[in-house]
């Protein structure tokens, strides 16, 4: 991997964020009501509104407003929330840290289930196990998070009292209680991902098991176990890195729903609140942070892939 590739890749992240910021800013411009009315309410006097508009720069041309906003973002200033009057940046970053914990927990849980499931299905291709995995994955991929979340709450928490219902407990406060509160949300988020990733692992593995080099390895007298662990696994799992990274986009969407249902004060819930309150600076910051997270994850995945697969040479 060359320095010029890294430069290009980082430049790409900035291009992506530029496009996202333009989209987000453009979307907030089509809003029928203006920000000043939102802050002061419908009954505010014209003078007060005019003063606020002047103060917020709402009378300036659109592109100056954009430049002003983006310049602030570069200095870490995402503006002030129209709803709470607090600075948006710190609130969002704190929320993000909780969401990342949830996301990480979900990804680990997902990999822990999906990878063995996919491999098992590929090795036992066409057998009962394969069909069972395939059935699980069809059902899993067809259940929206809000359905699984609601059903999980109904049965696991409400009926059988196996897990605590909604809420969030910081791990630093009470580790095991915190983990217990994370299990259900993480499981709900991972269901669709398990379904998707296990299918991908299966199909990669099936392809690899049909390659000439796997046949060659078998014909060298290696046992099925040696062939599977020594030759096939690595090649089948490499593409999974890319797939999981791309799925992070979907995962972030799931995080929004799950945080709302389980009342976890993460960035997803912040965004829902901001969207419902039409709190523009918070929406803009939240979307930008989510897109940035997605970009960074994919960047890391690319690097990881190139380190693990010697064939890839970036130029």
């Amino acid at each position: 991997m060359s320095a010029s590739y890294l430069t290009k890749r980082v430049a790409l992240i900035f291009y992506t964020l530029l496009i996202v910021s333009l989209i987000v800013f453009a979307m907030t411009q089509i809003l029928p009501a203006d920000a000043a009315v939102m802050m002061l309410g419908e009954n505010a006097t014209e003078e007060a509104l005019a003063a606020l508009r002047e103060q917020m720069g709402l009378n300036n041309p659109v592109w100056t407003q954009y430049l002003h906003w983006i310049a602030g973002v570069f200095q870490g200033d995402f503006g002030t929330s129209l709803r709470t009057g607090l600075s948006v940046g710190p609130v969002m970053v704190e929320a993000l840290s909780r969401s990342l914990l949830l996301a990480l927990f979900s990804i680990c849980l997902m990999l822990f289930i999906a990878v063995p499931l996919g491999i098992l299905a590929a090795v036992r291709r066409g057998k009962i196990v394969d069909m069972a995995v395939s059935l699980i994955s069809y059902v899993g991929v067809s259940l929206p998070e809000f359905v699984t979340a609601t059903l999980a709450l109904l049965f696991l928490a409400d009926r059988w009292k196996l897990l605590p219902p909604t809420g969030y407990v910081p791990l630093t406060e009470n580790f095991w209680d915190g983990v217990a509160h994370l299990i259900m949300p993480a499981a709900v988020i991972s269901i669709i991902l398990v379904a998707h990733v296990s299918r991908m692992v299966r199909s990669e593995m099936v392809d690899v098991l049909h390659t000439d080099y796997i046949r060659a390895a078998r014909l060298k007298g290696l046992s099925s176990r040696q062939v599977l662990w020594g030759h096939a696994l690595r090649n089948a799992l490499l593409p999974t890195i890319t797939i999981v990274a791309l799925d992070v986009g979907y995962l972030l969407g799931g995080v929004i729903v799950v945080e709302e249902i389980f009342a976890i004060p993460g960035i997803g819930r912040q965004l829902i609140i901001a969207i419902q309150a039409r709190d523009l600076p918070s929406i803009q910051a939240g979307v930008l942070i989510m897109a940035a997270t997605y970009c960074v994850v994919n960047f890391i995945a690319d690097i990881l892939y190139s380190l693990l697969d010697k064939r890839i040479q970036y130029d």
């Binding site: 000439d212 080099y213 060659a216 078998r218 014909l219 060298k220 030759h231 064939r311």
Partner: peptide, 30 residues
């Protein structure tokens, strides 16, 4: 017996060697 008493040479070396393992590993494992 395979690889020890009966072995095989394949048509296309580009596909019959595992792309992610070193050549040394692939011969020494036999």
């Amino acid at each position: 017996i395979r690889g020890k008493r009966i072995s095989m040479v394949f048509q296309d070396p580009a596909t019959s060697l595992n792309p992610t393992l070193s050549l040394g590993r692939q011969i020494s494992e036999v």
